[in-house]
Design a binder for these strands. Structure first.
Length: 886
DNA sequence: CACTCCCGCCAATTA
DNA sequence: TAATTGGCGGGAGTG
């Protein structure tokens, strides 16, 4: 107590003045209860207390008596300085006073009490939410820190986040101005707009329309460069001015905070999982994704989330996924702000086209958000801020209907995706299976049980992942998998086997997700839709399936090059993990196939017809949701230009088959199209960091379901790829649909396997490729024909994969399981998406043995025709018997 | 053990 | 050069 008193007495100022360590100061804080027993005091003298203890107490006590604190601090300092060993302290406590101890304990700042969230609340409590305009409240960091009894460092954490939302602004050193929530709405609106541009665009561009993409492609080509130049958004705030200063600011907590908020605003579900957010943020900033970075990012996100939680903008929730529950946050703040567009866009000098391009680019970049791009946007974003001038650069085209549509579209897709997941999870897998049986889904797509799939996505993935990994690495090795249904080599043959369905399959579309981006989406989407859809077997089932299918986006990674380096290492890591996963179900073998590269050719072939379709499908989904017909139309081009790989990916995503049965059929026409299995790409998160997963949407459900249930979980069509590895290449997945595989594990796998292979091999099926790399290729427009290369490329290079299959959803089909999926992934490193090319090669090789794949994109292109290669490579799927993921 | 996230070192910036 | 900011990650508290 004495101490406290003293501290109180002492002037706060000390901190600054005094050389003393901040940390020590912290200790001071105790105020909260002035009451604190005297006893404590003694300690200081003696040193009994551990600094920490003191701190805790202080902290807990803190709020009220700030003033005193200052004094306290001073007092403490000495004490602190004297620091003694902790242990003694404790003893002392006891000795000193039991009561005190108790008090301390009570007061003890348990960790929670010291949480940033609580601190933030205290901080916020000091200021009115809606201060009178007239009154300018200035905040002195030192003062607040002392009052709250915390280190100044902590105040920075709070202030930085608040500043990102413009609740406060820095007026001078150590001085902030409190604005309150008056402008919160505007800020959020801006963020939403910016978010849509960055994140949303990705989606948007997928938008279906072929035209759209088509255009994009063109634009992209043109624009791409530009895009690079321009940053999409900048979060930057006021600081924009000092562009130079970016370095540090880029990583700023402020920027992270804004991006984080943007994710929520862009997300339909309004739920964002931390890992997804972290991935997204990492992409933006980092090239290399390492686990440590991920962890760091997550830490930061917690910091931000705590502040946002205190602002009542978000709340913590848990999203249960395959692997288990993941921490996530749900936006509970205002959601709509009027228009999206906003000024921001308008300014941009660049016309829509640019914007589009930018978008594309952005999609990649943005998300990744690296500096420049962001900047521009950001600037706009800031609007008010100084930078504005620059920011305007960013084009705004905001609202073009298309964009919006696209956005919507994506959203839908996401929703579907999410839904699917949820369903899967939610529903027993069993049901799914059943449903599947019922349905007879022949189509591979359909697999999913509609109703029940809840688990699908998630579970499968993990498991799948592992297997995949193994497989990948050595393609050879892979066979290892429990079921090796297909030996890698065989694959080609296998592919044929698949044939049964091949027709459908052929074109499976793949979706690529940018790793991060997808997730986000997913998170957001969640169920809402899903829930509805599901269940009924027939159509509904299908739909649901579709929905699911839609979901999967493939990811790509953006930066191709960067990642390349990683590959090897990641792989290693992966494996272990994979193993774990696999273990579970040995039965199931997951077959992972990793196609090395898919074939371009197939794609090419497919592309024209199939490729696009897939894309279309997705749309369809949406359409389904909304209006099916339209969607299909869209489907074509899933491919996109490299630039925006991410975007592309997304765009690809579109394709998913159509959910509705009817629709699906249509697509089917194209032999290829029909399939479009969707794949989901999951980025590796922390643990998995290296791997990427792809799921076929279609399959997924089944797979998932399977996993849990009967089937070997494996049936899951997921493929994992080490991200690094992937980065470079394109993945291919073929979802084959297996025909009706029954849940039987082996069979399923085999089927799957076959499928995969087939895909690769088969022209018909399209193998999917995902190319991570960003391939340069620009886009493939939907129309394959359009570009010669594209056809091949698209698949290959483009990460985007696309696919999706709505149909997958259909549960009916014979087993959902069947799908084989393949996946791929690619990743790109974060940063520079730009050069896709560079990236790929290396990675591919590393990961995949396939020569062709590895090599250049060009090769691929060449290959296009040859599915063979790809097939083979692809084929390598791994099988895993692992036990189920579970 | 995983999730949280506090704490504070220390570098980048700023005054 | 000193002070202010703030990135970052070790590692502890929680469940």
């Amino acid at each position: 107590e004495n101490i406290f008193d003293r501290s109180r007495m002492a002037p706060k100022t000390p901190i600054k003045n005094e050389p003393i360590d901040l940390s020590k100061q912290k200790a001071c804080t105790p105020e909260r209860n002035p009451i604190t027993p005297v006893k404590i005091i003694d300690k200081p003298q003696s040193d009994p207390w551990t600094p920490t203890a003191n701190l805790k107490m202080l902290v807990s006590a803190a709020s009220p008596d700030m003033r005193d604190r200052e004094k306290k601090k001073e007092l403490f300092r000495p004490i602190e300085n004297s620091e003694q060993s902790d242990t003694p302290d404790s003893l002392q406590y006891d000795i000193v006073d039991d009561s005190t101890v108790e008090e301390f304990e009570k007061q003890r700042p348990s960790r929670k009490q010291k949480s940033l969230g609580l601190l933030c609340q205290k901080f916020l409590a000091r200021y009115p939410n809606y201060p009178l305009s007239t009154e300018k409240t200035t905040i002195s960091l030192d003062e607040v820190a002392s009052i709250l009894g915390v280190e100044r460092r902590r105040i920075y954490d709070i202030v930085n986040v608040l500043e990102s939302l413009h609740l406060v602004s820095r007026v001078a050193k150590n001085q902030y101005c409190w604005h309150g929530r008056h402008n919160l709405s505007q800020t959020l609106k801006k963020l939403q707009e910016a978010g849509e541009l960055q994140y949303g665009e990705l989606m948007t561009f997928q938008h279906k329309e072929q035209d759209f993409e088509y255009k994009f492609g063109e634009r992209k080509k043109e624009a791409v460069p530009d895009s690079q130049d321009r940053p999409l958004l900048d979060f930057s705030e006021p600081d924009c001015t000092s562009a130079s200063a970016n370095s540090r600011k880029d990583k700023s907590l402020r920027i992270m905070s804004q991006k984080f908020v943007m994710l929520f605003l862009v997300s339909k579900t309004k739920i964002v999982t931390l890992d997804i957010a972290a991935k997204i943020l990492i992409e933006e900033t980092q090239d290399t994704v390492d686990h440590s970075k991920f962890k760091t990012k997550v830490r930061r996100l917690y910091d931000i989330a705590n502040v946002l939680t205190s602002l009542d903008l978000i709340k913590k929730v848990h999203v249960t996924e395959e692997r288990g529950r993941k921490p996530a946050f749900k936006w509970i703040g205002p959601v709509e702000f009027s228009g999206k567009t906003g000024e921001l866009r308008g300014h941009s000098p660049t016309p829509d086209p640019l914007s589009e391009t930018q978008r594309e680019a952005c999609a990649r970049y943005q998300i990744c958000a690296t500096g420049k791009q962001r900047l521009t946007r950001h600037a706009s974003f800031n609007g008010a801020e100084p930078c504005e001038g620059t920011r305007r650069k960013v084009s705004s085209e905001p609202n073009s209907p298309r964009q919006e549509r696209q956005v919507q579209f994506w959203t839908k897709c996401f929703l579907l995706f999410i839904t699917v997941f949820f369903r899967n999870k939610a529903c027993g897998t069993e049901t799914i299976l059943n449903s599947a049986k019922n349905s007879n889904i022949t189509s591979p797509y359909s697999l999913l049980p509609v109703p029940g799939d809840s688990e699908f996505c998630v579970n499968p993935l993990p498991q799948a992942v592992f297997p995949v990994v193994q497989a990948e690495v050595p393609s050879l090795s892979l066979p290892i998998g429990i079921n090796n249904h297909t030996p890698p080599p065989s694959t080609p043959a296998a592919s044929k086997t698949e044939d049964g369905k091949p027709a459908l399959v052929p074109n499976q579309p793949f979706l690529c997700f940018p790793s991060s981006s997808l997730f986000m989406l997913c998170g957001g989407l969640q169920e809402s839709n899903l829930s509805e859809t599901l269940p009924t077997a027939g159509d509904k089932g299908n739909r649901s399936a579709e929905a699911q299918a839609a979901v999967p986006p493939a990811l790509c990674q953006k930066r191709s090059s960067h990642k390349c380096t990683l590959p090897s290492s990641p792989v290693d890591d992966e494996e272990p993990a994979a193993k774990k996963l696999n273990m579970e179900q040995s039965d199931l073998p997951l077959s992972l196939v990793v196609p090395k590269k898919s074939f371009e050719s197939p794609k090419a072939e497919s592309t024209p017809g199939s490729g696009c379709p897939s894309a279309v499908h997705l749309e369809t989904y949406h359409l389904d949701l909304t209006s099916p017909a339209a969607s299909e139309a869209g489907n074509k081009e899933y491919t996109k230009p490299l630039d925006c790989q991410e975007q592309e990916k997304r765009s690809q995503n579109k394709d998913p088959d159509e959910p509705p049965p009817g629709n699906e059929h249509t697509p089917e026409e194209n032999a290829n199209q029909p399939f479009q299995p969707q794949y989901l790409y999951v980025q590796p998160t922390a643990g998995l960091s290296n791997f990427n997963f792809l799921f076929s949407a279609n399959q997924a459900p089944g797979a998932i379901g399977l996993a849990s249930n009967q089937l070997p979980s494996l049936s899951v069509p997921c493929v994992m790829v080490p991200s690094a590895a992937l980065a470079s290449f394109p993945l291919v997945c073929s979802p084959s649909f297996t025909s009706p595989l029954s849940p039987v594990p082996d069979g399923s796998f085999s089927a799957a396997a076959s499928m995969n292979f087939s895909m690769s091999s088969l022209a018909s099926t399209t193998p999917v490729f995902i190319s991570t790399t960003a391939v340069v290729t620009p886009k493939v427009s939907p129309a394959p024909s359009v570009e010669p290369q594209q056809p091949a490329h698209p698949a290959l290079h483009l990460s985007p994969v696309l696919t999706r299959s709505c149909s997958a959803v259909k549960l009916d089909s014979p087993v959902c399981v069947g799908h084989p999926v393949t996946l791929l992934k690619l990743q790109q490193p974060s940063s520079a998406p730009l050069t896709p090319k560079s990236i790929r090669p290396a990675h591919h090789e590393a990961f995949f043995k396939t020569p062709g794949s590895l090599g250049d994109p060009v090769a691929w292109k060449k290959n296009e025709g040859n599915q063979t290669r790809s097939a083979s490579s692809v084929q390598r799927r791994l099988e895993i018997s692992g036990t189920s993921a579970d």
